[in-house]
Design a protein around this nucleic acid. Structure first.
Lengths: 109, 109
DNA sequence: TTAATTCATTGCAATATTACGATTAATAAA
DNA sequence: TTTATTAATCGTAATATTGCAATGAATTAA
């Protein structure tokens, strides 16, 4: 199939999976790291920074934007992308809760 | 293609992407949450708990096991799965570092 | 207006993922 | 031994993802 049966899971589980999925490609990880690193906003420098073709980067940026993790503003002919702070923080809350589950009881096997 | 060009990225970026990818499906999120919730180990109860067919669950468990996040021990005819505490903690370190990047400077757009 | 620049979109090929029926392997119970 | 139980593996169909060339839309420069 290639199609996840999302209706069988809770909203929280689906939300975690959606966030995780977008981090599941090294190009998107690299894009985000670069946006954090460069204090000012960045546009098509990402195409040079990362070694992929322009349409490929554009596609990855779109996915990050769709999830609300970044925002892009048009500046003349170029587009300035940067982290969306509020949404990033909200995403962190969700992911932290998942990653921080109590591990102390898991003493089996 | 459908094939990520991992050679263009750092080991860290690829590692983050690999961990994130395995969390990128709600069934695997649900499996992990259940393993955390059930203090004792769990085996094919997961098939009942989650609504997917046995081969599907088995496949998801395999991916989690391949990454070292869970471990399985044979107990008679059934297999007992549980979180791998050390590896989970190590994974958390990597993910936290990525998620916790300094957001205070990102005041653009 | 014309050309140049930047980025999004489209279309497509190659590969990956998801799900499950059927089967197999291994152990336990009768 | 025979049968049941449990879980892994195989094979396959349906869909998703990745990457890029070609193209298009929008703005700027000449």
């Amino acid at each position: 199939m290639g199609l996840a049966k999302t209706e069988m899971f809770t909203d929280e589980q689906n939300k975690i999976a959606l966030f995780a999925k977008v981090f599941g490609h090294p190009a998107r990880v690299a894009i985000l790291q670069h946006l954090f690193k460069i204090n000012a906003c960045v546009c098509g420098d990402l195409v040079n920074e990362i070694g992929l073709a322009q349409p490929t980067i554009s596609q990855h940026l779109k996915e990050l934007k769709n999830l609300g993790l970044i925002k892009g503003t048009i500046e003349g002919t170029s587009v300035c992308y940067c982290i969306h702070p509020e949404n990033w923080t909200a995403m962190k809350e969700v992911m932290f809760q998942f990653l921080n589950q109590d591990i102390s009881k898991t003493d089996c096997c």
